[in-house]
């Protein structure tokens, strides 16, 4: 208990007694993690946006002839049971005709004299989240083609190709930029902590000379690193929230007339906790590595 009190006391005193070094470390951790948090914020929001777009992906299955109600129900159930299918809606010829009329708007008189039978009945098949891509749609179509009564399929092939290319580019950019950013963050933080410990190497040497055991010397430094990591991460989240609020929320809504800015959300709690944990782990690991070098008996 006495030891624990000493370590806690020493951790805070070390930070108070070396205010410049402490604030430099916290500042560096804060800025590095803020960049990472802001990047994550952008990636997550773009992912949300593409997820919304992906809801548009559906396969329309046209029927050669309208079968009996029993047959229709049987086919609908059959499609619904496929693993990559989310929801199936039957669109009758009359419904299709009415929809077409609506789309024509003021020109709906073009349909005057025509019967709903000129349009085929169809199933509108929504895919599950995992299969909402060009490849997923093609897989479903291959499966549906096994039924000869399904005469045609439409799933926006051209749009899907562009969507797939965009998602691929987004993932690639995210992985490259994210990887670089994580590496840069680790590099900057570990080097800053290393320099602060280097600046205090005399203290480490003196502690070894007066009979402190390696763990006794290291624990306050590790705790200090962890605390600096957590404070840095909290500052990073604060800074990231300020950027989100002033730049993304207010700035974008002033620039854009669309509701896109309204859909932008801040980091979910799990990611915020992850960033605090990252700060904690970086603080400890960043301190542990140079301590191994400098605490030599």
């Amino acid at each position: 208990m006495k030891r624990l009190r000493y370590f806690i006391q020493r951790t805070f005193l070390n930070m108070i007694q070396s205010p410049l070094l402490s604030s430099a470390t916290i500042g560096t951790i804060g800025v590095a993690l803020m960049l990472l948090a802001f990047f994550t914020l952008i990636v997550l929001n773009v992912q949300n946006l593409t997820r919304q777009w992906s809801r548009e992906i559906q396969v329309t299955v046209y029927l050669e002839q309208v079968p009996s109600t029993t047959k229709l129900q049987q086919w609908q159930e059959q499609i619904e049971q496929m693993p990559n299918v989310g929801h199936v809606t039957y669109v009758s010829q009359t419904e299709a005709f009415e929809l077409f009329r609506k789309r024509l708007g003021r020109n709906d008189d073009l349909l005057d004299g025509l019967l709903p039978e000129i349009l085929p009945a169809s199933f509108e098949v929504e895919l599950t989240q995992k299969f909402r891509s060009g490849h997923g749609a093609e897989l479903l179509v291959q499966e549906l083609k096994k039924n000869p009564a399904f005469s045609g399929f439409r799933y926006g092939q051209d749009w899907l190709k562009r969507y797939d290319a965009f998602v691929f580019l987004l993932k690639l950019t995210g992985a490259l930029a994210g990887g670089f950013l994580i590496f840069a963050t680790l590099f900057i933080i570990s080097n800053t902590i290393k320099l602060t410990i280097y600046a205090r190497r005399d203290e480490l040497e003196i502690m070894t000379l007066i009979g402190a055991t390696p763990m006794f010397i290291k624990i306050p430094f590790l705790a200090e690193g962890a605390l600096q990591g957590i404070i840095g991460a909290l500052l990073a989240l604060g800074g990231c929230h300020a950027l989100y609020f002033f730049f993304l929320k207010r700035g974008l809504s002033a620039l854009l007339t669309t509701t896109a800015a309204g859909n932008i959300t801040f980091l979910p709690l799990s990611v915020q906790a992850g960033i605090i944990l990252l700060g904690f782990v970086l603080g400890i690991c960043g301190s542990a590595l140079p301590l191994r070098k400098f605490v030599r008996m």
Binding site: I206, L209, I210, G211, A212, T213, F216, M297
Partner: peptide
């Protein structure tokens, strides 16, 4: 390392550069 630490508790050190 641990035994060295305990040994040093029985030794006093004084250096040219004081090491304070």
């Amino acid at each position: 390392a641990r035994k060295i630490a305990f040994l040093r508790r029985q030794i006093g050190f004084v250096f040219q550069d004081f090491k304070l």
